[in-house]
Design a binder for these strands. Structure first.
Lengths: 197, 197
DNA sequence: ATAATATATGAATCATGTTTCATGTTTATT
DNA sequence: AATAAACATGAAACATGATTCATATATTAT
């Protein structure tokens, strides 16, 4: 299931890429509703009509971006925590990767949040998929006795919430890294919240 | 500083109230950008032009709603935690009040999140104000030795993040209360994350 | 080289929505 | 009761932007 028309030639693929790249940039800058097809095609360097060769409508390119983001982010985090020795180490590495990711893609961070208004079901699916993977990892850690036996779904959403709002405070608003002291304290808070006795 | 023209008569005050109420409902249902002035005036039962007697433009009524929400929510939480015996009890009560509030105002919950795209500065100010009050309360608890000495701003944003995403998962998406087991586990997580040794 | 397919163009077509304004009605003031 | 100030109306002016389409060019297959 794809939100765009698969190009059959090299040239077509390049045009599609230009459109996606332009859309990502401008949606990140001005938001979905303040972005016009003209904005996108102009930055991509193609005519207005060309847009509709690849996408049936404006919403479709937004949806395509969300899917792409979701995939890239989850993959990047999964790879980064692959070799963690235990759950606590996985959490620390996962948070680092997430912050690094939104640092490099602050435009996509905004895109995901706006999805709540452009396509609520997709927004929900996005977080549900992340939360599902998170929950499973936590359930595993509980089985191994690495952390307390708490409701894993609640825990997943809590940790996602922490990541999002701490990221919002420093990376999105301040355009800086999360200060080391804040990061360490955050991990201390999470760690003692989850660890046994 | 106000975003609307103060009515001088009883009749004017009623019309203003109708407009605000209608806007709150429709913004919550369809989002800011999918709501037209016609939608608002129709539901309020007044003519299109009447809107501009009270608000200079569409954005202004949205901003007025945010300010109103911000004020009501902070006040409600402040009152609810006034008589808490200690910080942990204040947290538990504060979370309960927050969830109850968004349960009664799920439309306003959506309005605040959309503010990020309609008026980013106002969105930021909204959370900064909440975070500031939260931080101060936490700093006080640290001084009293009730909780660990952690970066209070980080802690404030983390707790706001937890509340928002757990609320999103159950109250907004599922339209139910947060299950008791999840709520208790959430408080257990937060409590052991903050308490000393 | 020719036909078939894919890609590209941009002006025209729809569709919508914000804001203004000339005019009329209601309420408060004297 | 007369006058001024507030409030209300809805059609017109103004602005924008998504989508379609007839036409043209480029690429691939035969």
């Amino acid at each position: 299931m794809s939100y765009y028309n698969e190009p059959k030639t090299e040239r077509g693929q390049e045009t599609l890429n230009s459109l996606l790249k332009a859309a990502e940039e401008i949606f990140g800058e001005k938001g979905y509703y303040n972005t016009s097809i003209i904005d996108i095609t102009q930055r991509a360097g193609v005519a207005q009509g060309t847009f509709y060769i690849y996408f049936p409508n404006k919403k479709a390119i937004f949806q395509a971006l969300i899917l792409d983001l979701s995939h890239t982010l989850r993959k990047e985090i999964a790879i980064s925590i692959k070799n963690a020795k235990n759950r606590m180490e996985a959490e620390r590495t996962g948070f680092r990767t997430f912050f690094s990711f939104i640092n490099r893609h602050s435009d996509l961070y905004k895109i995901v949040w706006e999805a709540q208004f452009v396509d609520p079901d997709l927004f929900r699916a996005y977080y549900q998929k992340i939360a599902k993977g998170y929950s499973d990892g936590l359930a595993n850690a509980i089985k191994k006795g690495e952390i307390k036996d708490l409701d894993t779904e609640m825990l997943a959403y809590s940790l996602i919430g922490i990541a999002n709002f701490v990221g919002l405070r420093w990376i999105i608003w301040e355009k800086t890294q999360v200060p080391e002291k804040a990061f360490d304290d955050m991990m201390a808070f999470i760690t003692s919240g989850m660890k046994k006795h």
